[in-house]
Write a protein that binds this DNA or RNA. Structure first.
Length: 561
RNA sequence: CGGGGCGUAGCGCAACUUGGCUAGCGCGCUUGGUUUGGGACCAAGAGGCUGAAGGUUCAAAUCCUUUCGCCCCGACCA
């Protein structure tokens, strides 16, 4: 590509409110252009990167035997009503009505469509297993689009669906995809973690997320600094450590704490650290009230409680439900209600809890003397530097971008839709399914989040829009120009993806653009070439410059690329 | 959905509080000249229905109402 022809209009000034590094760099480097909130144009440079990522994904999908299909973006409402998701999916579903007053939605995901297809074509175990995938635009009416292309209302996603006759086969398929995903994320050059995850509204039991470590991520994950354990903080376990306070028990004391409900308020008012407070919250689990206790500097992980209680539905108790003075609840004298405490609570001597009386707390509360929890169980959210549940080394809590998510769906969709097959014994069974997504457009941004410096993007070679940037410092100089042109043609012939900066710009401008665009290799043809036939090769990533005689250039490129 | 903020040239912003000449500045763009290895300089230009609708007024970018769009923070922790 000739720079003079490229649809490239770098922006020096970008809006103040653009936050994420990837967003800033993508706007600056003219990769994308915002059309509306959460809706973007992909411009030539951005689109090339998108295509490269797509190709990597496609190659891996094909290699595990999946076949590519293209499914509609427009879905009739009936399909979504069958699975109940017309209502369950909520406001994120883009709904619309056609001229005949038929209701439709723009597909946020394609389980309904693909399962209906399978219903139409599959009726025997002999046809199973198989996998289909699609790479296409999906739509979600996000409550708040954010971080440029990372959280959009319209975005490109790869979805693979697998169909099986039994659990073993599903498991087989699941791990085939799991390893294909590893290959993909490795090929893209991402720093990522595979974490055990909650399956969310898509459903199913087993699930892994592929998370790209990045500050602007909206996922929070915990991973072990030593072994391979990792999970979302929703799911993560930890090895509880009980630190016994080393002090003697003081007499219980009731204190007036008018209007002070939160841990911070009470802690500040009494000048006692939050770790000495015991937070007590009341939840409703399938209609039954349960009290949960954690140390004041911790947070309850409701996800864990839900699992522990094996409850279908749990929620925090509302002010209007029951007679407890919310904000002043404590375990002392709390009756007819199960109390579950985090093991950490055991270590607290002379703690502070709510008194179950409006505007009062108790000081110097001691476990055993003043109250006894019904059971201890680690129910708080993990924190940075907690101990790994497997190897007891320290965990790291970090933010990341959810880039891939794989689920075992089971028969969640095949059953209601009626995608059945006949077993060898003539039985009719619903097809067992798996579903496996990758946020393709999001990966473009995620990669930039990890690969940049103050001058711009640093593309990993596999997904760079071009491999080589030929930079003639003075386009008006005939010998420079001739050499650059010849080099450009030679490299194209040899199959390299090359940019030739044939603009009549000052050298400085070209250097700045080359850095911003982050093309892995830059070849500078300047005054050293004019004087002594020397050209420069610079690697964007390491900033290493090598000067070599011009006639050795092509050979040298073979070596480094 | 709750709270806050912003819509003025392609982009980034000023002028609005206290209404009043031709709505400014920077980037980018056009023309000419000088420059030419890290976002050059000088000169001359082009480019605006001040988001939209209504109102107040002799007079509205500016005040009022409505509406549309955009951004940020929050959205179960006691």
């Amino acid at each position: 590509m000739r720079m003079s022809q490229l649809f490239y209009y770098p922006q020096k000034e970008i809006p103040k409110d653009v936050e994420a590094i990837s967003h800033i760099l993508m706007v600056k480097s003219c990769m994308v252009e915002r059309v509306a909130s959460g809706i973007y144009d992909f411009l030539p440079l951005g689109f090339r990167v998108l295509k490269k990522i797509e190709d990597i994904i496609r190659r891996e999908m094909l290699s595990i035997g999946a076949q590519e299909v293209l499914l509609p973006a427009l879905h009739p409402s009936e399909l979504w009503k069958i699975t109940g998701r017309w209502d369950d999916y909520g406001e994120e579903l883009f709904k619309l009505t056609d001229r005949h007053n038929r209701t439709l939605c723009l597909g946020p995901t394609h389980e309904e469509i693909i399962t209906t297809l399978v219903k139409a074509k599959i009726n025997s175990y002999r046809q199973l297993p198989f996998m289909l995938f699609q790479i296409q635009t999906k739509f979600r009416d996000e409550p708040r689009p954010r971080f440029g292309i990372i959280r959009c209302r319209e975005f490109i996603m790869k979805d693979l669906y697998s169909f099986h006759a039994d659990e073993d086969s599903l498991n087989d398929g699941y791990y085939k995809v799991y390893y294909a995903y590893k290959n993909i994320f490795d090929a893209i050059g991402a720093n990522y973690k595979i974490v055990e995850a909650a399956s969310g509204p898509i459903g199913g039991d087993v699930s892994h997320e592929f998370v790209i470590i990045a500050e602007s991520g909206e996922d929070e994950i915990a991973y072990c600094s030593s072994c391979s354990y990792s999970a979302t903080t929703e799911m993560a376990d930890y090895n509880p450590v009980i630190v016994e306070d080393n002090e003697s028990e003081l007499p219980l004391e009731k204190i007036h704490t008018p209007g002070l409900k939160s841990v911070e308020e009470v802690s500040e008012y009494l000048n006692i650290p939050p770790s000495k407070l015991i937070k007590t919250i009341i939840i409703k689990a399938d209609g039954r009230n349960v009290a949960l206790m954690v140390r004041g500097d911790s947070e309850v992980n409701l996800n864990k409680v839900e699992k522990l209680l094996n409850a279908r539905e749990i929620s925090l108790l509302e002010d209007t439900e029951g007679s407890l003075p919310l904000g002043f609840v404590g375990p002392v004298g709390l009756e007819n209600i199960e109390i579950i405490a985090d093991p950490e609570v055991k270590g607290i001597k002379n703690g502070v809890v709510g008194a179950n009386i409006q505007d009062y707390h108790y000081k110097n509360v001691n476990i055993g003397r003043d109250f006894i929890p019904d059971r201890f169980y680690p129910i708080r959210k993990v924190k940075d530097r907690d101990l790994c549940p497997r190897c007891s080394k320290e965990l790291v809590v970090s933010k990341g971008i959810e880039a891939g998510h794989i689920f075992k769906l089971g028969t969640k969709y095949s059953e209601p839709i009626g995608a059945m097959f006949q077993t060898p014994t003539g039985e009719l069974k619903p097809v067992i399914m798996g579903c496996y997504g990758i946020g393709v457009s999001r990966l473009v941004a995620a990669s930039i989040e990890q690969n940049n410096d103050r001058n711009g993007i640093i593309w990993p070679r596999n997904i760079a829009p071009y491999e080589i940037y030929i930079l003639p410092t003075d386009w008006a100089n005939e010998s420079i120009r001739n050499f650059a042109e010849t080099l450009y043609k030679k490299l194209l012939e040899r199959g390299y993806e090359v940019i030739l900066d044939d603009r009549d710009e000052r050298a400085g401008t070209k250097f700045v653009d080359a850095d911003l665009l982050g093309i892995p290799l830059r070849i500078t043809i300047g005054n050293k070439f004019v004087k002594s036939d020397i050209v420069e090769i610079k690697e964007r990533k390491s900033s290493e410059v090598e000067e070599i005689p011009s006639e050795e250039l092509i050979l040298k490129l073979k070596e480094v690329l």
